[in-house]
Every structure is written in C-alpha cells, then in structure tokens.
Design a binder for these strands. Sequence first.
RNA 1: GCCCGGGUGGCGAAAUCGGCAGACGCAACGGACUUAAAAUCCGUAGCCUCGCAAGGGGCGUGCGGGUUCAAUUCCCGCCCCGGGCACCA
Length: 812
Amino acid sequence: MPEKTYDHNEIELKWHERWKDDSLYKAEENSTKPKYYVLEMLPYPSGALHIGHIRNYSIGDALARYMWMRGYNVLHPMGWDAFGLPAENAAMKNQRPPREWTLANIEKMKRTHRRFAFSYDWDREVTTCEPEYYRWNQWFFLRMLERGLAYRKKALVNWCPLCATVLANEQVVDGCCWRHEGTPVEQRALEQWFLRTTAYADALLNDISQLEGKWPERVLTMQRNWIGRSEGAEVDFTLDGYGPVRVFTTRIDTIYGATCLILAPEHEIVRTMASPEAQAHAKKMIDARATQGLGDVEKEGCDTGLTAINRFSGERIPVWVGNFVLMGYGTGAIMAVPAHDERDFEFCTKYGINIRPVIRPVDGALADVPLNEAFGNYGVVENSGQYSGMPSAQARKEMAAHAEREDFGKAAVTFRIKDWGVSRQRYWGTPIPVIHCEKCGVVPVPDDQLPVLLPQQIQITGKGRSPLDEVPEFVNVNCPQCGEPARRETDTMDTFVDSSWYFYRYCDPKNTTAPYDSKKIDYWFPIDQYIGGVEHAILHLIYSRFWTKVMRDIGLTTCDEPVRKLFTQGMVIRNGTKMSKSVGNVVAADDVADKHGADSARLFALFAAPPEKDVDWIDAGVEGVYRFLGRVFRFVTRNVDAPGGDGSADKDVLRKLHQTLQRITEDFDSRWHFNTSIAQMMELVNVLYAEESRISAAAMRQCLEILTLMLSPFAPYVTQELWQEMGNEGAVIKQSWPAFNADLARATDVEIPVQINGKLRTRITVPVGLDKAALEAAARADQSVATLISTATVVKVIAVPEKLINFVVRPN
RNA sequence: GCCCGGGUGGCGAAAUCGGCAGACGCAACGGACUUAAAAUCCGUAGCCUCGCAAGGGGCGUGCGGGUUCAAUUCCCGCCCCGGGCACCA
C-alpha cells in the first residue's frame, strides 16, 4: 500500500464525528472488573481551555486510557466549578446574567474538551452552579448546622475592597487578596457563617499518615504547617482589680523569666481597662495592621498602666499592648520571656523591659547565657523556686500540672488552623439555607424546601452589600417555625464548598433524593488517582479532606480520606512566567489544535518535561512531535500490506520493540516519566526507519500493531486511524495493552566500556551473562585491551558484569 | 529567617541501584530529492586543543573540599534560581 500523508485535520474530524455519542468511555455500574477512579481537578469555566489545562488532562487521560486497556472499569469524569466572582464581573461589564455567561463558557470549553478526545464519561458531568447540585451544598450545610459544625459569629474578617466580599484566611496571600495582588485585605467585624474545621484539626493532622508516600511530600508538609499543632499550656495571670488574664505558651518552663504580659491590640482588656493613651495607641495599631499587611513590621507597643501577678512567683509585672501579638491565635495574650524568646527579646530591648534568664544549657551555667540575644533552647530551669534544677521537659509537665491543680491553668494544644469562614457577600454562589426570624432567631430552611434557589432576574451593581439584599422576593419570607414575616440569609457560600465533595457526586450524578447513593460511593471510592496543580495543596485539598471526615461521621461514607494518590503536575510557563490572562501569554488549546492537531498538543505537553516539573511552552517543540506523528503515520501506512524484507533485522528490531514496550509499561505503573516513554518510541521509530527493508512481513506486523497500541494513550486520533488502516476492528481503547516478551527483549551481546584507571579507553562486545572472571578473561583476550595494559602492571581489576571493566594499573 | 524543590550543551531534557555524561527532541550546519522552495530522507555536532588526514590529547553535570578503582549520583561547606511558610508565643 502506498504511503499516505498525515492530515491531522481530516483524521481528527473523522473520529471526532464517530465518537460523538461518547459510548466508549462509560464507566460500568455493575462490573466484575476491578475499578479505577482517575480524576483531574475540575476547571473554572472561564471561557477557554489553555495549554496548562491540556497538560493536566493529558496526564489523566493517558493514565485512564492505559487503565482501560489493562482491563479496569475506569471512572473518568469531568465537571465545572461554575460559581464564582468572574461571572458577576462579566455580568456587570456585559449586562449578561451570570448563569447565561457561565453556561455559554461551559459549552465552549466542552467543545474543546471533546476536540482533544479526553476519555470522559460525560453522562456524569457535574455543574456546580445548577440547583440539582447546589441544593446538596445546602443539605450538607444543614447537617453541619444540626451538629454544631456550622455556626455564626461576629468576627474580624478579611475584607477585600475590590471583591467587596469577605475572604477566608486561606485566600489571603501576603496580607493581600489572592485574586488582587497588591490589594491589602482590610479587617472588618461582621456576622459570618463558619464551618468548624478546628473540630477536625487533630484528625486532619493524624490522617496525613495515611497519605504518606502517596501524596507529594511537600503537599503534606504544607498541610501540616497549615494545621500548625502546637503543644503547650494555658496559664492565668491575675490582673489587679480585674481577675485572670489567660495566656498560651509552649514554654511554661520559662515562666519565672516572664517580665511583662503583652496583649493583642484587639484584646478585650485593652478596650475596657487600659489607659486612654494605650487605648488610642492600640487603635492605631489595629488600623495600621489593616493596611500594611506585607512583610516584616517593626515591633511596637505601649504600657497599659496595668499590672498582673505571676501565680508561680508571685511577682507583679507590667501589662503592655504589642502589635506583634495576634488576637486570632492562642488567647490573644502572651507572657513575654525576653531571655528565651527572640521576639520578646526584640520587644523588651526596645522598651527597656527587664531581661531575666531562667534556663541554662544542660552543660553550662546560667552566667554563660548571653544577654545580647535570646537563648531559645531547652535546658535546665534555674531561679524558678521549687522547679530549679529540673530539665525543661520535666518542668513543663510539672508546672502545667501545678497550674491545673490550683485551677489557674492546664496543659493545652493550640492550632494555627482556624474555622472556615464560608460567608460571601456575593450573588453567584450557593445561598446559605437559613432564615432570620425576630422571634425564633436563626431558623434552618426545612429539607423539603430545598433548594433555596438563586433568583434569576437580578441587577448586579457591584456596590454596597450583597446583591441578594436588593431582591425583596428573595429576602422576604415567612418563618418556617412561627409563620411570621422574616428575612432570608443573603450571604452565599464560598465556592470551595462546591469543590469539596463534587467527586462524590460523579458516582451518582442524577440522584434527586440524596447527594448520592452510599452503595455507589463504596464501590468507587477512594479516588485512586487525583491529578491537579500544586496551587491547591492547602485550600481545596484540606477542605475536601474535612468534608469527607464530616460525611464519614454522618454515615455517608466509610472513607477517612477521599484521595488515595495525589499527583501535582508542574505549571506551563511561557516567556519565563506562569501562563495567565493578565500577563497575556496564554496559549489557547484550540489554536494549537488548529495548527498541529490535538494529538500533537497532547503529545508535546507530555514530552517537553517530566509531568511534575514546570514546562516551557515552545511552539517549535510542538512541530517536533508533529513531525514524529507524521513519521509514524507514513511508516505504518506504507508497510501495512508490504511484502516484507528478508527478516535479517527482525531480531534487532523485535528486541528494540519489546524493550520499548517494557519501559513504557513500567513508566505507566510507577514513574510516570512520559517524556522518556515518548522518547523511547521515537528511538524505536528511528530504528524502524533504518531497518525498514530488512524486516519480514510478520515482524513488521507485530511492530506496527504494538507501536500503535503503545502510542494510543498519548495520541488517540492518529492511532485509531492507523488501527483501522491495519484492517483491525473496533476502538483502540477497547484493545488489550500488549504484553511484552521478555525473551525477545533480552539482548544477546552487550558492549562493555573498558577503563584504565577510571578513564574510558576502549569498548569490547561480549555475550550477556558473563561473570566477573569470564568478563576479565574476555577483556584481556581483546587485542586493543591487551595493548593498552601491556605497558603497565595491573594492580587490580574491577569487573562488573554487563556494566564495565576497569583495570587499575601502575606504570612500569 | 525557616522548610521544600532545582542548577547538566545554544535550548527542552536523559542517565531508574555509585559504573560509557548529554539518549530523545528543538534550533543549527552539510548532503540527497526538487527548475526552485517547502515537505521529506540521510548525515554532522559538549567545549578546548594537536594533526594535511585517519586519528590523538585535555577539560567538562553551579562553586570548593571529601569518600571511592569509579561521583550528575553519596558526605561536608558555600553560591544562585523557583516555590511554600513567615511575628503562631
């Protein structure tokens, strides 16, 4: 058969049409096959897929296709993280309702998804802005409310003036809004809804051990740091004329060295009891904190005029306010031990407050403790009454026990993680399903009245409070309890709620009576492989873990953790910076597909670098893999029915073929270095070109089929076309992954480098399987080796079978 | 400041367990085909150096040391780049 020209447009269009009904990728509901759930993070429907998305999906899709071919029942779904601020901004700009804008974007992006032939089961598509989905957000919220896991409090919250809404702590980056770099977040006191993530702080931390080795270590480290468990003690100091002031410390063993107490500027006692000057100062510090945000801030403080008594020593010490003490951590008050804490040292030095060492090094004296810096190590406690002479660890225990006995303190654990603030003063999100009644207070919307629907007709001005406040039909309701007129809650939920459980919904996407049927979850969960960007290491992945634990405790799943294995792929870089709309260096997926085809775009996304590494997008690089696909296409089409050569190259070619197959199979099973998998196939094709005329018809057939099958997870269109060209029936994805033949893969001869004193001098070819002695004999028997060592005395011979031989010699 | 990654040709990278550094690809150069170009096919190529040539020698994985017959790989000390955390008491 004459060689054909590789026309990617024709081929991709043809198979795109045939695959339209999607029946190929349906996950089976009652299957005897082993299951495999592979998931890529769902995108925000911004309007267009770019090449960063393509990389993410190409990794997942190659894996999904491989697992199909390995005989697994694969669940590979896709959906849309469809709530969020951009839709509202677009609505303001274009006078287009957010829903309309969002759904149009989804249609557009879905077309691109299909164009790239990602093997999704679209019957399971989830769109989080649709009532069928978000009603279950509301349902979950009510379950959490019943269990005290959702609650409302007035709190200082992070407010982004540009978003005109509250942000979660996780959404504040360097004191600025995560979406508006350089816009400092302000602190405002508002009534807000929170989810009690702190109730699961210990569980979230402990269960990280279940993820060890299966999630990237740095993600686990980031989560551990974020949770920030810290063991210490709470202790009361007695404030003259007031009563106890509680502090949290990890170093209660240094308490005899406490020379003052420092309160956060927001601390209640500052407001109620401090001197007027101190109150004014504190106010300034609070305001400054709201605007300065970034970086290191000079420590600042002010004496409140109050004094407090140390219950251990009976000593009376001054009480200060300090800008570096955080209201949101511990109790909002600390005891300052300048001799043993760097920050306290800095503060007390600045204001001339006493520095008194009470810890000495285990092998030193108290007098050796330097007074020009803080000595923060553990050691032996001194000048501390009955505790003097104890090691730090013992003192920590005994002092906490003493405080507890005397009822002025206890051993305590504090977490850095806070409860998750989920209120947003926005329109385009899940309405929080509660009603505020003058008489009954906060009343949950009854389950049978769910979903609380977002009103469709709405003017979004971007000014003032939540847009829902302006919709009387939405706001004005009757209280479900007493029937009197009441007001609906107008805050909506953080969109991270949507993505915290969407992967469960994929298992039962059309359920109208429950978020899903637990039996289906039991079959599919946990997710075997989750693939996404490392930027979600904390936010999304910690919320998802939290949600699963809550669901487990409600009895909705038996999983402790939703995700068994996590893979974080690298970013796609262009011109030295991360691809983003604002930089204007985005490469649209459709543009690449137009020019070189979806297959080439997918192939290059995987070929350019190992998947976990950042990759530079180079247009010329796509041309390289495009050429490769053309080479494959032409080679296969012209050899399909060729009479074949004399077979003199069969052995070498089949060895290369099976070695390649082995490597690619191993890469799928462990390393995922698809860049080398693809390079291996390129090498194979180079060999095929070189030996083309010396390959027999039978060996050629084997090469063509196996090459096509191996390449198919990466380039589904062209391989499908070739599969048909070869006269085969059916879809490539339904074929079995070829088994490599270890006998054929084995080499008979191996080239051994010969070193003299560690320097490469020549090479010899020997049969495989020679032991040390035989290898040395073979080397000595070689004429050029004999010449090389003849002028010196061989002192030692290092022979490593199938690797190398090294003669250590001394000149004569 | 602390905690992770990373640093290899002109470029993206490879070397899986301490054993031939630079596979594969891009860009480049030379040749074939072509009226010509594109496409395609074949070939050259780390750097320096000696030689008319065949061929030879030296250097080389951020820098400096160490272990070893042998180090991109292991150990110690630095430098640079990227990311995360950053008053968390």
